[in-house]
Design a protein around this nucleic acid. Structure first.
Lengths: 238, 238
DNA sequence: CGCGGACTTGATCTGTCTCAAGTGCCGTGG
DNA sequence: CCACGGCACTTGAGACAGATCAAGTCCGCG
């Protein structure tokens, strides 16, 4: 079975292309880092590659958002990485993919043969640079999973969806209002699986943030953070 | 202050060089992957680089074990990676190290200027290959931190210290006894910080494993797993 | 208008944390 | 050689954050 071929045929217009202008899928679209790629298009909620399948390709996201997840035999799931434009996945130290990749939004991706990575210096360079970035994100996420409270996890998750805020390069609040519109193309269950919580706990944390006047939710999958700075202080990372 | 210079002077004989023949530090010593390295020697429990300091160097471990950790402002700690010979650290997507590296045993490492990574194809190749491996380990660890019980975490931790067992390439138990000797150059607190638990919970998990006849502990930092297969089934990964 | 899936909220349960004594081991000094 | 002190570890009892179980409620869609 060939995921890519399937995706190239199935071009059902994605529901959200426009709505997800902020958040994981906010990064500007990217060109192919290196010649030699096939371009593939996936709709929302499509499996791009599967844990345990032969790891024949590596993927570079051009546009859209992807999640990587792993399953335990008894069904427990952990969502391991949330990826956006420029990010890489499909790399493995064995012959098999170590995780499943699923599109959260419509996705355009460049697909390379695994072998091509061994021969192309350019691709190696592009991949290793991006992997450094993803590794740092994983480090932060390990801290979140190992040591943060439920409220801190949810606050950190939301801050991660707001570009240019919360990091070392945070430019601080705007003069007038410290408000940010965030699209969340994930269910509560997926957020829970990403944060190592249950969906009920995630829901309660959202409710608390609403009660505290930190955010409002016009829709379940779209929130407005009305006080980014206060949210940031709830992440535990201060 | 220069860690490397300091380390090269301070050659206090490490206590454990010989004892840690099994476990994290078990991998055979490696040669420098690329010309252009300085070699540095560190004793046990030395800080090789610090979270927040300027990330001027990258390190490749030749021999020994290193842990990477991060701190929250209130003092909560997460140990993020355990590294052995061949592994890489010091890479960052910012100008600063994102985590602290500390030697668990005596360590010999190759140190490269960060800039050298940009120019040396060989080093890029070596680093990106190893990083793929470390990324897969991080994925497993995220699953552990997000979804496993305390008992499963401790079992997984111990299995990770036993080479050639528990993975896809597990060769199964030896004909006679399924016993393995494991050195653990970490305190209970460090194990707890690695597994996202408290030291008491780790201690209780060890006690339970002893009670169940799965291991004995001649010393606190040295255990004998008497039934590797049973331990493996307690990891949750089955 | 009615259905179904996603979400919220409440009540209770439980695994892990927290706090508090112990215990054992190793190095030091008498 | 043994007593002592300190540190790492173990064990117990109770507290609590988050999980689990169980109703609702909301909202998009046919």
């Amino acid at each position: 079975m060939n995921h890519i071929a399937h995706a190239e045929i199935d071009r059902t217009p994605p529901k959200h292309d426009a709505a997800w202008t902020i958040g994981i899928a906010a990064r500007p679209a990217q060109d192919a880092p290196v010649k030699g790629a096939r371009e593939a298009i996936f709709v929302e909620r499509e499996t791009l590659c599967e844990e345990g399948a032969r790891a024949d390709h590596i993927y570079v996201i051009a546009q859209g958002a992807v999640m990587l997840s792993k399953l335990l035999p008894d069904g427990r799931r952990q969502i391991i990485e949330l990826l956006g434009a420029g990010d890489v996945f499909g790399l493995s130290n064995t012959a098999l993919y170590d995780s499943t990749a699923e599109s959260l939004t419509a996705v355009r991706a460049f697909v390379y043969d695994r072998r091509f990575l061994e021969t192309s210096r350019e691709l190696q360079q592009a991949v290793s640079q991006r992997m450094t970035s993803q590794m740092c994100a994983m480090h932060d996420h390990a801290m979140l999973l190992g040591r943060k409270t439920a409220a801190e996890r949810v606050a950190s998750f939301l801050m991660g969806l707001i570009p240019h805020r919360g990091g070392h390069g945070c430019k601080g609040p705007d003069a007038k209002a410290d408000t940010q519109h965030v699209a969340i193309p994930m269910t509560r269950q997926e957020i829970a699986d990403y944060l190592g919580l249950t969906l009920e706990t995630v829901s309660r944390a959202f409710s608390q943030l609403k009660k505290d006047g930190i955010l409002t939710a016009p829709r379940h999958d779209e929130i407005v953070v009305t006080n980014v700075c206060r949210l940031c202080h709830l992440t535990g990372a201060v």
